[in-house]
Every structure is written in C-alpha cells, then in structure tokens.
Nucleic acid binder design. Structure first.
Length: 865
RNA sequence: GGGCGUUUAGCUCAGUUGGCUAGAGCGCUUCCCUUACAAGGAAGAGGUCACUGGUUCGAGUCCGGUAACGCCCA
C-alpha cells in the first residue's frame, strides 16, 4: 500500500465489481424483508448538480445500510423526460442548423429527441456511477418508456371517467417563448417596480368620468366592463350605466361586484376577462364577453385596433402615449407588484383565456391531507407538514395540457363530423356517436409532472399486478429537497392515495438546498456553481459525500465549503493509514468478514470494544432517525479521536508484549474492520478498497452490518487519559521537550492501576513511573490529580519551583469556580428536592471531586512558600 | 399581506424529550519530521449562545415580544 491515499485510482475500480457481483439488486438478500426507495428522477437532459449529489448521498446511506442489515433493498433509478426542458435543448441544437421544430414536423422532431436521448441520456447514469450510488440498474425506468406511458394513459382515462379531468376555457399562464400553457407552480413571481397608470373612462352619457388604474395599460384594449364594489357610495348611481373605452370607443357597462376592493386605488377597476384571472371570474358572474387582445406570440390582436401586431411591451408604451395625447391619462406612479416569469426560460408570462385540460383537484385533496394527519406517511422534519397542509388547502385546478411535442400525447380524440370527444387509451376506430371516421387526436401533450406523480408505482409496473409492485410498493422512504414538495411530493401522494389505495411512501425525508459558500444560491449565471464532478476529481467522490452528509442537518440549507471537502479527503487518508498500521501487525486476510471478536481481550482491547459497541448502537439509532449529520459526526470523531489517537497508540505498546499481543492483534483487526463497514454507506469506495486489503475476502458492500458484543470497559481508562493529558500539558506549559522523560510518582489509593496501565502511562506521557507514591517528602513536587489518583513530578532539575505558581493559581481558580457552581446548586433546597436524583448525585460527585482537587492544589501552592 | 426558517468561537456550522465545565471542521498560537499518516501528532487561545421579558430548582434548549437576514405563498 502507498503511504498516502489516492482517491482517483481507487474510485475508478469498484463500481464495476459491485455491479458484476449483483450486490445492488435486492435479490442479493433473497430472504430479506423488502425495503425500497425510488430515486427522484433527474431530467434526462440534465447533468447532475451538487444538489443531486446530496440527495443521492442520503439515499445511498439509507439503502446501503439496509442492504447490509439483510433487507432485500431496492433503490430504483431512472430519469424524467422533462417536457419543456428537453424540447428546448433539442430545439436549440436545431437552431444551430437554422432549423425550427416546425421545419421537421412533429414526427421527425420526436425522432430527433429520442436520438438526442440515446446519445446524451446516459451521461447521468455515468455520473451516478462515478459517485458510487448503489442503484439497481436492472430496474432503471424512464418516464416516457412504454410501461410508464401506459400508466399515464390509464390514469388520464380513469380520472376523466371519474370526472376529475375536464377540458375547459380558463385563464392560464402562457409562456410566449415556450409557446405553451404552464401550471401555477411553473410560474415564478418576482417583485418588481412597475408603473401604475391611471386612466379616465368617461361615462357614455357625458355626465362625468371614472378613473381606473392598471400596471398593464395595453390590456385596456380588451376591457369589457368597469367594476366597483356594490356598497361604494362614490359609484352608486353609476352602476348599470356605461362608459366609453378610450382609443377603442367600445361602450362597456359598469357592474357591481363583491370582488372589488373598496380601499384599493379609486375603488373602480377595469375588467379584462381574457387576460386576468380575477377579471375572468367577474365576467363569469356578470355574463360579460371576453375579448382577446394579446395572442400566443404576445402581440396585440386585431381586436386591439390600431395597435394590432405590436409586441405587448411596445403596445404598453404606445397605449400610454396615445392616452396621454388624447387627454385620458390621469397620472403614472411607481408601484411595487409581482410579475410572473416562466420557470423554464424566465420570460414574463401572459395570463390568457385558453381551452385546456385540467385536473379537478378538490376531491383529491381531502384524502391526501388525511394520509399525513393520520400518520399513514410522515414528513421528516415534521414542520414541513404544515407547509404541505396549507398548500393543499389552497390548491386550484391543475392545467395539465402543454402545447409541446415532447411528452405523453393527450389520449383524447375529436370527431370532425359531430364534435364528439372520446377519451380512451387506444385510438378509437370510429366516432361512437356518429360513426364517422374522421377523428383527430388532441395535439397537446401532458405536463411532465403528470407522469412524475405516478413514479413510485408506475416504475414497479402498475397498473399491472407485477411481482415488484407486490413486494416493493409502497416504498419506504422518499428523499427530496423541499423545493419540489409542491411540484412532486404532494401530487404523488394524491395519485398514490387515489389509485393505489395507500401511501406511495412512508417517510418523506426533506433535505435542504446546497448553497455556495457565501450562502447564496448556486447558479450558472452567477458563476458560483460547484460541479460535483470537479470536486470528485480533485478530492474524491467519497470526500464529497462525506462532506455533504456531515453538513446535512435535517431540512436546512447547507453552504458548501471547500474546507469541509478537504477535511473529508484527509479523513480518507487517515483511514487509509490506520489500515496500513493494522497490516503491519495483522496478516492480510486473517481478519474475518464478520464476527471474530476476541474471546480474551486485554484491558485496552476491552476499552475500545466497549466504545465500539456503544458507538455502533448510537450510530445506528441516529441513522434510523435520518440524523445523518449527527451520525456521521459521531462515527468520525470516534474513529479519529478514540480509535486512531488513543487505541492505535496504546496498541503499539500492547503489541510489543507477548502476553497481550495476540488479543490486541485480533482486536485491532476487527475494530478497523467494523469501522470500515460502518463507514461504508457514507464513503463506499475507500472502505471497499481497504476491506480488500484487510479482510481480502468478499465485499464490504455485501457484508453484514456490524454488531460488536457489548463489553464492560476496564477500570482506570478515564484516569489514564486525563493523567496523560495533564502531564503533556505540564510539559507544554513549561516548554519541556516531549523527548525529555519525566519521573512520575503515582499514588493510587483505590488500587485501580495494574500492569497495562503503568506501561501505557510510561509510553503515552513519556515518563518513568513509580507506583509507591506519595513521596515521603511532598515539597518540591508538582502534583496532578486524576480521579482518585495523584501523580507527583519532582521538580528538581526539571523546572524552577516558582514557575509552577501561575499554573497552580490558574488551576485553583478554575476548580474554585466549578466547585462554587456545584455548591450553589446543592445549597438550594429547591434543587435537591425537585431535580432528578441522578442529577443531584452528579452534582455531589462534582463537589467531592473538585474539593479534593482543590485541597491538593492549595496544599501544593502553600508548599511553594 | 400570510407562513416558515435563521441569528451560538475569526469563518462555516452542530447542539431533539430543559441538567453544558456549550462542541466540530477550518483558521490562529506554541512545540514535535516519535518506523500508520507532516494530508500528521501534542498542547492551547478564542463564546455575556441577536436583544428583551417570562416559565422553571435550573434555559443555548420552552413561551411572549423586538430587531436583522433568508425562503415560500398570495
């Protein structure tokens, strides 16, 4: 083995071995209980970003641990066809050749997209492998593959039959660049400073005027009414009369509607039913016509008169200019308002009246809320449940049709002869109403999320009753960032509850977003995005995973610091060298793959085995609770601070003694082996490599989860460690060389030390120890207390006696402070009466300890004179 | 406007049924190339846990209020 660890060499080696051994297939544990996770499918066009790395690192820890615990663990991978995103990518490619999708036509364009997927779609899978994620590739799925498409068709038809899908004219959000309708949550609202234009509308009878205000003056071209609140005294007499629209000359009514806010602006609002959702509702209530004045290109329609053909923003200026010129402009003022943008391309969306397909969500909401309320599934952390409830309660019907080509075609056919609509999975042979044969399929495709919402069960073969569905559904855990709870999680719950009569998953583990080191969102445009593969190349995939998991406090965003990754990389090297040390003493291959704990461990061996037992139990518990950061922190500190810093150092002494060497050899082997196994789900590559060096047989990926026997630690270990640290500190404070051997006399009234203890003290603190203490003549020694023990160091020839004074005074002050605190508590009868007995006993112990220590220190100080 | 989160060491963050002499990594100071590791070891400095009021024997932790920052929804 090399003296230092090179992640590149190791990480390229193991994935293929795991795959060929079939360890990622649940069949590897044929007797095991099923345990399953479906991956949140990344966009097939995409590349994995650091957020995916976090998301999948968490899932891999879960699934690798369960696998090692004997479950038939399935982690199902796959990708999402990502309608708009993918179509945009391919259209951009075409644009380079000066072509648009319309030049190719629908069929050839879709062929192009499939070709693109065949060429580039595998990149994500390679990336998943590079980071070591243990997905079962034999079950890989794609939202647009045959089976999943069948599920989509089935769901659409069923929902239609159940009257939960309908087609209708509603205000939808239109992206004029993507040329498609969007759902509410595909629109991102941004606060912007706009201008509020006040316009005067004259009463048609010439008796006066009303002023309305708008941030989108161009929409006045499509006004079909002015609305006021029914109880607004200012307009009481005007209700039922008409105004004449400036520029257009149309006579429109003044209507009274509760939806108008009395307080806002002048209290009168212009009504543009075709381009505003609230206005549309008003129009519905009053039977007003809708006039479309903006088309799908965001240009003004013929209904806009002289402004026909102008872009909406040009028209905004032109309308203002003309209103001003004709004297209808009252004023313009600055105004903060939120403007919707397409979440895909950032273009300002246009609310627009349009004939689209919708999911009626009302009947689906109740059972989906009940599932969480009744504990059928739960969010971790729990606080996300409130967000979920609030969102579900305010849900509006979901626009699912998209004017794209790449996606699941809507399974609806229209009869050209009689207007019959037929919704069926397979193309109908003729019109069921007029028997005509001129049928046209709906041109639109479904929102990508319509297929993603079926992912937990469509991937298992649903609606067929497959073996996988029976075994692995419902899934156990869903791991996702909070930003897609609405897009995805909520809808999976709705569909899971509705169609599979149960929860799609039981635990919904929510994690945060990975942010740049300065806390800002990572984005390509700011240029602060960290590419996980750059990190993997420089530091190793293991280091990236370890760093992310250490930082992954439940549900919180994590700023990514390179320092953390670097520290994680150094841990790999440390582990590497610990194994090298072990292999200097333990023959490679002699360590059993599991079990093999020594039957007669020595004292230091019992100590580390006891700690290993405790840490294993605690680590396992933390992982079960999804507290990854705490779990990894615990194991990391145990490995480094206890195994490496203490046990390995103590083992050196033990291994030199024939009577203790064999037990320590065995212990060293199994402790390091168990560390590798416990760490494996977090850092799979380096642990597998080291396993092959140390154990030699089998794979750590396929081994059993460690269960070290519970041991009692030997007496004296705490005292030994405290004493060693104190002696080292004494040295440091007096600037004594670590090489200078100190003579120490130890007084051990309770007789807790024995041979091993003395050996360790001599080596670890570089002392020659005499256990006959205390010395006859105490003066001239410094003394160090450690539990019931005292150690005396003769100062003659070592340090000037006076030099001990400040050290002692400081130690006395500290002890006094601590003693004071504990005494104060115990002096308080309320404390002794009300605090739990063990807490009181703890304080009593402290008082004893601190006063004994203080006595000794004071004695020593007085001896200085 | 409504909701949620954050505020702890120079920096980035842990701290889950209230018992803390408040931790980690990085950075900083001093010493050490001791045959696993200098990508290392040893020792150390550094915090009125945002502010404020309360509950409690006891509050970083629970409750009320204030401030700043961030996110989500309208």
């Amino acid at each position: 083995m090399d003296a230092s660890y090179d992640p590149q060499a190791v990480e390229s080696r193991w994935y293929r071995v795991w795959e060929e051994a079939g360890v990622f297939r649940p069949e590897v544990n044929p007797e095991g209980e099923p345990f399953s996770i479906v991956i949140p499918p990344p966009n097939v066009t995409g590349v994995l970003h650091i957020g995916h790395a976090l998301n999948m690192s968490i899932q891999d820890v879960i699934i690798r641990r369960k696998r090692m615990q004997g479950f038939a663990a399935l982690w199902l991978p796959g990708t999402d066809h990502a309608g708009i995103a993918t179509q945009n990518v391919v259209e951009r490619e075409l644009a380079k050749e000066g072509l648009s999708r319309h030049d190719l036509g629908r069929e050839r364009f879709i062929e192009q997209v499939w070709a693109w997927k065949a060429k580039h779609g595998n990149r994500i899978n390679e990336q998943v492998r590079r980071l070591g994620f243990s997905t079962d590739w034999s079950r890989e799925r794609f939202t647009f593959d045959e089976g999943l498409s069948k599920a989509v068709g089935h769901v659409f038809v069923e929902l239609y039959k159940q009257d939960l899908i309908y087609r209708g004219e509603r205000i939808i959000n239109w992206c004029p660049r993507c040329h498609t309708a969007l759902s509410e949550i595909e629109v991102e609202h941004e606060e912007e400073i706009g201008e509020l234009t006040h316009i005067r509308y004259d009463y048609t009878d010439g008796t006066g005027s009303v002023v309305v205000a708008t941030t989108r003056p161009e929409t006045m071209l499509g006004d079909t009414a002015v609305a006021v609140h029914p109880e607004d005294e200012r307009y009481k007499d005007a209700i039922g009369t008409t105004v004449t629209l400036p520029l257009i000359g149309r006579e429109v009514p003044i209507v009274a509607d509760d939806g108008v806010e009395l307080e806002f602006g002048t209290g009168a609002v212009k009504v543009t039913p075709a381009h505003d959702p609230l206005d549309f509702e008003i129009a519905q209530r009053h039977g007003l016509p809708a006039v479309k004045v903006i088309d799908t290109e965001a240009n003004i329609t013929r209904a806009g008169g002289e402004f026909f053909g102008q872009d909406r923003f040009e028209a905004r200026e032109a309308v203002r200019h003309e209103l001003n010129k004709q004297g209808y402009m009252v004023k313009i003022e600055d105004h903060h308002h939120s403007v919707g943008h397409c979440s895909r391309c950032g273009t300002v969306v246009e609310p627009m009246l349009s004939l689209q397909w919708f999911v009626k969500v009302g009947p689906l909401v109740g059972p989906s809320i009940a599932l969480i309320e009744d504990g059928g599934a739960r969010y971790v952390p729990k606080r996300w449940e409130n967000n979920y409830f609030r969102w579900m309660e305010n849900l509006r019907d979901w626009c699912i049709s998209r004017q794209l080509w790449w996606g699941h075609r809507i399974p609806a056919w229209y009869c050209d002869d009689c207007d019959e609509v037929m919704v069926t999975i397979d193309e109908p042979q003729g019109c069921k109403s007029c028997q005509g044969s001129n049928l046209t399929q709906d041109q639109d495709v479904l929102d990508t999320w319509f297929s993603s919402q079926l992912w937990p069960f469509s991937t298992m073969g649903w609606p067929e009753e497959t073996a996988d569905l029976a075994e692995f559904y419902p899934t156990d855990v869903l791991v996702t960032a909070y930003d897609i709870i609405y897009f995805w999680v909520a809808r999976m719950i709705m569909m899971g509850v509705h169609f599979t009569d149960g929860e799609p998953f039981r635990d919904i583990v929510i994690h945060g977003l990975v942010r740049a080191a300065d806390g800002r969102k990572m984005s390509k445009s700011i240029g602060n995005a960290v590419d996980p593969f750059d990190v993997a190349d420089e530091y190793g995939a293991d280091a990236l995973r370890l760093a992310l998991l250490q930082a992954a406090s439940p549900g919180h965003d994590i700023p990514l610091n390179v320092e953390w990754i670097d520290a994680a990389r150094r841990f790999g090297n440390k582990l590497w060298n610990a194994v090298r040390f072990a292999l200097n003493h333990v023959e490679s291959g002699s360590v059993p793959g599991e079990g093999g704990y020594p039957t007669e461990p020595g004292a230091i061996d019992r100590w580390i085995l006891a700690r290993l037992g405790e840490v294993t139990v605690e680590y396992d518990k933390l992982l079960e609770e999804y507290r990854f950061s705490d779990a990894v922190g615990l194991l990391y500190n145990f490995a480094w601070s206890e195994v490496f810093d203490w046990y390995l150092e103590m083992a050196k002494t033990s291994l030199r003694k024939p009577e203790s060497a064999e037990a320590t050899r065995q212990t060293l082997g199994v402790v390091i082996r168990d560390l590798l196994a416990l760490f494996h789900p977090v850092i799979p590559f380096v642990t597998e490599e080291l396993w092959s060096e140390l154990v030699g047989d089998g794979l750590v990926a396929a081994t059993s989860w460690p269960s070290p026997p519970q041991q009692a630690a030997p007496a004296g270990m705490d005292e030994l460690q405290a004493l060693v640290v104190s002696i080292r500190r004494f040295r440091a404070e007096h600037e004594l060389s670590p090489k200078k051997e100190l003579a120490v006399l130890v007084d051990d009234p309770n007789d807790i030390t024995s041979g091993w203890w003395r050996d360790q003290l001599e080596v670890l603190a570089n002392t020659t120890a005499d256990f006959d203490g205390p010395p006859a003549e105490v003066a001239g020694h410094t003394r160090i207390t450690s539990g019931s023990l005292q150690a005396f160091i003769p100062l003659a020839g070592v340090v000037d006696i006076e030099a001990e004074r400040p050290r002692l005074e400081k130690a006395i002050a500290e002890a006094e402070d601590l003693l004071g605190r504990s005494r104060a508590k115990l002096d308080n009868p309320n404390f002794t009466e009300r605090a739990p007995a063990d807490v009181v006993a703890g304080e009593e112990r402290k008082v004893e300890e601190f006063s004994a220590k203080l006595d000794k220190l004071r004695t020593q100080l007085s001896e200085l004179g």
